[in-house]
């Protein structure tokens, strides 16, 4: 079958942030933390908001959260790796989510996932080297009637086909070129 791997692949490339980037991440994490009181039950909402702010959960942000909530570091890491929503790697500029709910799967969602993998050259859970796109799957976005569904930059798009995949990519590319023209520097 198309994708037999049951674990998201682990990319060998380790992402190391520069000290400046790390400091910036810590600062922005602390900004989010201020909104919460130091209760363990806030751990998941805190992580969600930190991820909203940074796009992912780098090591330094998790350490900051652990310290603030007085939760062992390993527990923060445990929660982050348990839930599908949390990312340990920086996202791309555009997020591609392929719905693999029952209806989408039966109507060819797995073929779309293949098409994206082929075009972007990354597996599910990964980001392209130029950090333009990140590809992942989602269990069901709840618009099964429109299957197969892809969620492109948080916008659900129904009845997608492999040729539409190329169309979406082309649109992003043209948009980028247009922007580059407007700002020649």
């Amino acid at each position: 079958m198309p994708d037999t791997s049951t674990e998201p692949p682990v990319s060998n490339a380790k992402i190391v942030n520069t000290p400046e980037e790390q400091e910036d991440n810590r600062r922005r994490t602390r900004k989010v933390l201020k909104k919460f009181n130091r209760k363990r039950e806030n751990l998941v909402p805190v992580l969600q908001q930190v991820q909203d702010e940074l796009g992912y959960l780098p090591r330094e942000a998790m350490l900051e959260v652990a310290e603030y909530l007085k939760v062992p570091e390993v527990d923060v890491y445990g929660v982050v790796t348990f839930y599908n929503q949390f990312r340990l790697k920086p996202p791309g500029k555009h997020s591609i989510r392929v719905c693999l709910g029952t209806a989408c799967h039966m109507k060819g969602g797995y073929i779309l996932l293949d098409a994206w993998k082929r075009r972007l050259g990354v597996d599910r859970g990964e980001t392209t080297a130029d950090r333009e796109y990140d590809l992942d799957t989602v269990a069901c976005v709840g618009c099964c009637a429109m299957a197969p569904v892809n969620v492109i930059d948080k916008k659900a798009e129904g009845r997608v086909s492999p040729t539409r995949v190329d169309g979406i990519l082309l649109a992003f590319k043209m948009e980028k070129e247009k922007k580059a023209k407007e700002k020649p520097d």
Partner: peptide
């Protein structure tokens, strides 16, 4: 309102509670 974080098992009530308490579900 509390947003789950994408774990199917959290539909099970005891797992849901664990998740609300800030633990893995």
């Amino acid at each position: 309102p509390f947003q789950g974080s994408g774990a199917f098992v959290c539909g099970e009530e005891t797992a849901l509670i664990a998740s609300l308490e800030g633990k893995p579900g």
